[in-house]
Computed example of a mutant assay.
Amino acid sequence: MPARFLIVLDADSTLIRNEVIELIADEAGRGAEVAAATEAAMRGEVDFATSLRSRVSALTGVSLDAFARVRARIEPTPGVHELAAAVHARDGVFGVVSGGFHEVLDHIAPQLGVDVWRANRLAHDGSALTGVVDGDVVDAQAKADTLLEWAAERGIPSHRSLAVGDGANDLTMMATAGLGVAFNAKPAVRARANLVAARVDLAQLIPLLP
């Protein structure tokens, strides 16, 4: 049976409770510095791609072995398993598009019932991070383009898509979707969303599914 609808979530502070780049930065002893820069980017005060490249530079030298520790600290957002089950019971597709990193998302997305996902990749020399993003940055426009691409591949009209996010880099995707939901969101995102989730519990999105 073809998919009936598509729901696409942001990852950090939406699919999961954490900001992964801050967890990686902790491994470099620069967690507080990177957390402040992440907060400014999520509020929309700085260009996301520029900010991400700057924050990734702070990760230079972090051992690839650190990712096991980072993944162990990931906290799924309450209700994520219930939401995934409801999406699949209704013949929907559960996607995640993130300004975070495949190095973590590739491990946690399948465990959380995610069908398709996209994120940034971190360059490394075989043993440690080199402080740059490998390839194009997944920014606000890339998130919106990915939602449309996934919908088109499955023959899903854009009006039967939902986008859920918390930061300024989610706004373009939320405006592109049939319904944009602010979740655990910054004030600027709450002001521009179609709906605002009242609690940090993804199960509350189930009644919104087509």
Rank of each mutant, 00 (worst) to 15 (best):
V133F: 05
G155I: 00
E149R: 14
F101I: 09
D115G: 04
A123S: 09
D106Y: 13
V116I: 15
G113K: 06
A168M: 04
I108R: 13
V114M: 08
T77G: 05
P157C: 01
Q141V: 14
A144I: 09
V62R: 12
A68I: 09
M173T: 09
A185V: 14
A123T: 08
I74D: 12
N169D: 03
V97D: 13
E82K: 00
A182M: 09
S98Y: 06
V114L: 12
A119Q: 07
V62T: 07
A163R: 12
D106P: 10
F101V: 12
D145K: 01
G92L: 04
V137I: 11
G165C: 09
A140N: 01
R69M: 01
V70H: 04
G61L: 06
A86F: 02
G99I: 00
T60M: 02
A177T: 07
A163E: 13
N184A: 09
A123D: 07
R154M: 00
T176Y: 11
I156T: 01
V164M: 12
E153Y: 00
W150D: 03
R71A: 13
E75H: 15
G165Y: 04
L105Q: 11
L64F: 03
G180M: 06
A68E: 15
E149W: 04
H107I: 03
R118C: 06
V80L: 08
G155V: 01
T60N: 10
S57V: 02
T60S: 13
H88L: 01
R121S: 10
V116S: 05
L162F: 08
N120A: 03
D115W: 04
V138W: 05
A144E: 07
R90N: 07
D125N: 06
P78V: 15
E82M: 03
L112T: 10
A84H: 04
F67K: 07
W117E: 10
G113M: 04
A175F: 01
E82V: 03
V137G: 01
D65K: 14
A58K: 13
L64V: 06
I74N: 07
W150Q: 03
G95V: 02
P187C: 14
V181F: 05
G178W: 02
D115C: 02
M173K: 00
E149Q: 09
F67M: 11
V137C: 03
L171Y: 11
E153K: 03
V104Q: 12
A168V: 04
V137L: 04
A58G: 15
T60Y: 05
V164T: 12
T146D: 01
A177K: 02
V116P: 13
R160W: 14
E82G: 04
A72S: 12
S98P: 09
L59W: 05
D125M: 01
